[in-house]
Amino acid sequence: MFAIGLYLALVVAPADYQQGETVRIMFVHVPAAWLALMIYSVMAASSIVAIIWRHPLADLAAKAAAPIGAAFTFLALVTGSLWGKPMWGAWWVWDARLTSMFVLLLLYLGYIAIWQAIEDPRRAARIASIVAIVGFINVPIIKFSVEWWNSLHQPASVFRADGPAIHSSILWPLLVMAVAYTLLYIALHLVAIRSELVGHRIRQIELARADAA
């Protein structure tokens, strides 16, 4: 899986070079942002499964997804900022999308912090699921409110990305990149889940030894 992801990313990379300097960032940026949202959805879905059917694997899946999602969100923010500097003349603009992504990063960090703060893994799993689900309910509300706020404060003069329709020469590499990113994410997620499982088993062996002692 990992090999396929890397292979596709390498094949796609040359296509980027035909585009202008700044547009090239978009191939990294846009799929990262998509993935950031998708991974949060996966995390919330796993949490719902975990809280209803109490399946421990669902907890581990959600837990494993969080750092990956946070990394993609961070990547999207950094590349967006790099792209924004030449385009807007500023590293950071309080654009609705940027702000929403920033909030998403905070939600990821809060979720990870909960796992770290609670010692009992079962209790941590329950609480983290609640955090993920409540966050998920709030993401659309936050997105909506930030857009409202943005239209209130900034007339639509700053951000005009959706001017011309996307040319197919850009669209295709973008889609391929998105697929490559998704595969990369799936590979990372599977590896992470496996390492969580191994960690879980190690803990159980240690517990058994402690009991025997």
Partner: peptide, 16 residues
Amino acid sequence: LVSLLILPLYIPALIF
């Protein structure tokens, strides 16, 4: 931890 978890959720209430 409460601040980190809850402040982002305060955004809609703050804005409106």
